[in-house]
Design a binder for these strands. Sequence first.
DNA 1: CGCCTGCTTGATGACAATCAAGTTTAGTGG
DNA 2: CCACTAAACTTGATTGTCATCAAGCAGGCG
Lengths: 234, 234
Amino acid sequence: MRSIALAKNNAVKYPSCLSTFTQDNAKIFPHPEVRNILNYHSGQTILFEDDTIHYLYEIVTGTVKTYTILNDGRRQITGFYTKDDILGLPARGRYFYSAEAITDTTVCYHTLSRMEQLLQSNPDLAQKMIEIAYHQLSDTHAQLVSLGRKKPDERVATFLLNCQRWTTIQVPSQEAVVSLPMSRLDIADYLGLTQETVCRVFSKFNRAGLIKLLSASQFTLKDQKQLSALAQTL
Amino acid sequence: MRSIALAKNNAVKYPSCLSTFTQDNAKIFPHPEVRNILNYHSGQTILFEDDTIHYLYEIVTGTVKTYTILNDGRRQITGFYTKDDILGLPARGRYFYSAEAITDTTVCYHTLSRMEQLLQSNPDLAQKMIEIAYHQLSDTHAQLVSLGRKKPDERVATFLLNCQRWTTIQVPSQEAVVSLPMSRLDIADYLGLTQETVCRVFSKFNRAGLIKLLSASQFTLKDQKQLSALAQTL
DNA sequence: CGCCTGCTTGATGACAATCAAGTTTAGTGG
DNA sequence: CCACTAAACTTGATTGTCATCAAGCAGGCG
């Protein structure tokens, strides 16, 4: 499963799993079962923007949103993250987003200082960290294109296709059920729209037979080709 | 000088200069004067989106824009880059943007395969690459907030303040002249607006005394405080 | 000096935000 | 298990804002 922070089409799942390095290779951390696992309920905050970075989080299960809030309360969700994604990449020593659990979530955390020590002696871990950052960067660039230049229909189409890749483990079968763990408001704040507009586009796609809405939080893709064309995703 | 891909306020210049590592530490590349320097004229393309990545580029002088083009010609500029910034970070083996010189530009390039070899033996270089990627990621997140949730006035204010930090070497004196090497259309395509809207906001800020336009491509900041408030940049 | 490109300003209209009701869903307690 | 409540979602009507269309203006380069 990959981050859907991205609106990238040709992206495939990239193996992250820092635990492999920190536990199996380096044995720095105790086993997840022992100490470095945390659980969050839906709605709980995992980290706050501008806090000093002490930990790096790896999602074990669940879905997490990251966001920034402006003075007057406007919110931009900058990404959705799920199993194996990494949260809390450090820049200038501070988190550059807040993160909140959308569903009940389990994370594995690693202390940053240990991580930095490890990087010195473990080039494979360093390579992995670089890859993770680059993938997130690539995904975020795709999202810039959505927010800056795509119309509401196109943004939603892009988002739905990303949801599919995110939900579906392997080759997506035409009729596989895709789930939307986040609210309409979350989707709106991710796509730079209002929840009303998101609703209307969902309904429109449903009526047009591009998707079939099973419930507010589940749908299937009925016309992937047309959706891809809308998404400008060749 | 830092990338102004970012709309980040509290960001400071981060030293990149990969040459330090590749030349002084590792002596892998010949001296810049000899072989790994390239020059581009204003308007020339440096790299194309979706091309296989062979090189990493470090800007020596000049200003570069990166962008993505949609099917029907809509363009999103994803960042402006200048001295010491790195272009061509690899994700999934392909460049995820095209890059074009705005002014005459000199770059120093490094082959990716060499780079990867170096990473294995040089943890400091790895650390540097990670930092660069994280900074770019942080900057891009700030830009997501601009595009998704800020109003045109606020986006322009954010942009102008970034231009100041980008132009000004050190502590910005109130009246220092800031230059805009990119066209109004470039600015518009960066901010998700039209060039007409950008023009109008520039004029409005000029009339209101927030800035003083010296020419189409030069201005001074007259009321930084008010601009910062507009930019939602505490 | 004159043209051409880029910039600026104005008039108009489309589209998404806002405001406002309803409707459905999920969660809680009897 | 079902009734009740609150939150989330959906749909409709109206408004405001920014894109579009259009026309001058100016500055830079041959």
